[in-house]
Design a binder for these strands. Structure first.
Lengths: 192, 192, 192, 192
DNA sequence: TATGAATGAGGGTTCATTCAT
DNA sequence: GATGAATGAACCCTCATTCAT
């Protein structure tokens, strides 16, 4: 059944994501993923050609979600400050799902394996670049409309995106924050 | 000779750091480290009991440097804003060396391996906590003295420290210009 | 329908033979056989209990054909030299089909797998022995009738049968031969 | 010690040869080779990069021996019939060792694995061709000198070389008697 | 002390065979 | 009967660690 196949693939991805986040790419074994997903090891290879492809699939998926959010917000007819604010809010509302994205966004992950690099170059890097471009556009617009001070829009993009990641550290440090304060700090910091 | 032993150990650490940063912990093999350091594989085990211990040693070393800087700055009889500014400057002046620290500070790295976790708990976590405490103290002082707005000092610490990492994300980072701007953004963002 | 079952079985055997010859027993996967035969993998197991049984079936089939030819020729009321000549001719006329036989006749193939040996012992070896006996009979008769020199008939059988195999190498070495010369060489070599 | 390394490599090759001959390439596992050679599995990989390379090494080695013999005989100032005779004799005298060569010379072995084919093309085929050329030269010379009937020298080469293999087919082969007869049959068959 | 060959547990992947539909 | 997804044993190979020299 079509449903079933999709379900199993989803299960593999979900289990793998959990383990990749918890233990990292290398310490996670295909065996464990299979066991956790309650399927046979060989079954995984019916859905993904390699362990790396599971990782890449997750990576791409996360990036796709990010791009969609940014795309949507960018085209809204509102003030760029408002856009940044919306992205912050959206990010927080999806923070659990996003957790994955953040973990996959770290530079470390780009060094996973020699074999993976080519694929990353081809499939992942363009998406990361897309994300940066989208954010940069928003900042460029904001600077043009005098909503933000005249900083380099690339710098603002990097800071902003990295700040989103910061939010994921909150639980570890027992910070009870809805993101309002972080947003405020950032917007005040870059205001004209 | 005492000198020799120290020199070899240093060489191993230096080579290992380079490779860990470039390829990550797992893809780096002890064989490669030995080859790069121009010593025999067995020799490495005369200086470090395991591959992980090399990693941990580097990690601790980085943290120690960070703690020393913070300690020094914290005790200076200057405005907290000035302290934060100094830390920023110090960080930028050491940005190349710091690159290593940043790479070790990521959350991913804490999940290196099941075996390593206990050691991290015992030796690394206290140091990370120390760093956060030192920074938090500075912010607490700044809030008290009305230099900073009344945000949660934990929040400010996390944001600040994570921001330092941001600086390392772009190889094309223009230290003088971007560093100054980054500092400006943060200080403006948290000012009263 | 009876016809259908037989057709499918034949298709499997034909496809498998091609692949076994082209790639060998182990590199040929059941998956590939199924795909080439345009049936499902599971279907193959409705016709053959194991991959090895496909191989064995082919083997036996080839041997059966060989036995039939030899049987027929042996009983003809002609000179043994003529019999050998006829076998040669028949072999050449069937050389394309026989190609399979030759490939299956090599000793290598008898070592396919530990599991297969018992079956070979039981089902294949008797047939191979039968072939040798038939040929040996012809030579024995020829020696008796002074058509051939008094060599050991077993030796002659081995040489003769192996010589048939030789013809299969001709294409590889771009030898344009109708077998006339080879036959001549052999018959002259063994003549009285 | 240099001696030791050579000894281990030799041991691996010897054990591997035995097993390849007995069971074939695929059914022979690296594990078994290691066990038989009384070394650890990993050790094998210190001497050979892959299982296939062990096979190829053996293959090449055998061919090299064959080429050397042929080379030597070819350059002798004797009648071509004598040369063929000598090769026969040499072959019989080395029949035990030769057994390996024969087993490696079968066409089947050329189809070992997709990966191996390129290597075979590059390293093995030239040697096989060399062997054929050397033999062909001897026959060409013999035909020219009217020692052999005017058959295609390529045909004679293939038949002759394949005939050498024949000698290995029967474990019960009586070298002295049968070898002499085989030689006689061939030489008589091709004589003028 | 330094070496690097030897070890063997463990991992990713394949594929003959089974089984639910 | 036919299908092809699921299974899991088995294989090749890697690499952290040990150990004889």
């Amino acid at each position: 059944m079509k449903k079933d196949r999709e379900k199993i693939k989803e299960k593999i991805l979900q289990v793998a994501e959990e383990m990749f986040i918890k233990k990292g790419f290398f310490p996670t074994t295909v065996d464990e993923i299979a066991k956790q997903a309650k399927i046979a090891k060989g079954t995984i290879y019916l859905y993904f050609p390699t362990k790396e492809s599971i990782y890449l699939t997750l990576f791409e998926e996360k990036l796709k979600i990010g791009i969609e959010i940014l795309q949507k917000v960018k085209n809204m007819p509102i003030d760029p400050r408002e856009k940044i604010s919306l992205i912050f809010d959206d990010w927080f509302s999806k923070i659990k799902k996003a957790k994955g994205l953040a973990n996959f966004l770290t530079l470390e992950n780009i060094n996973i394996s020699p074999k993976i690099i080519l694929l990353l170059r081809k499939k992942i890097h363009p998406k990361i670049r897309k994300i940066f471009l989208l954010v940069k556009e928003i900042f460029r617009e904001g600077i043009e409309k005098k909503s933000f001070k005249n900083y380099d829009s690339k710098l603002l993009s990097v800071v902003f995106l990295h700040l989103l990641q910061t939010t994921l550290l909150f639980p570890s440090f027992n910070i009870k924050e809805d993101g309002k304060n972080l947003k405020e700090i950032f917007l005040k910091g870059v205001e004209r």
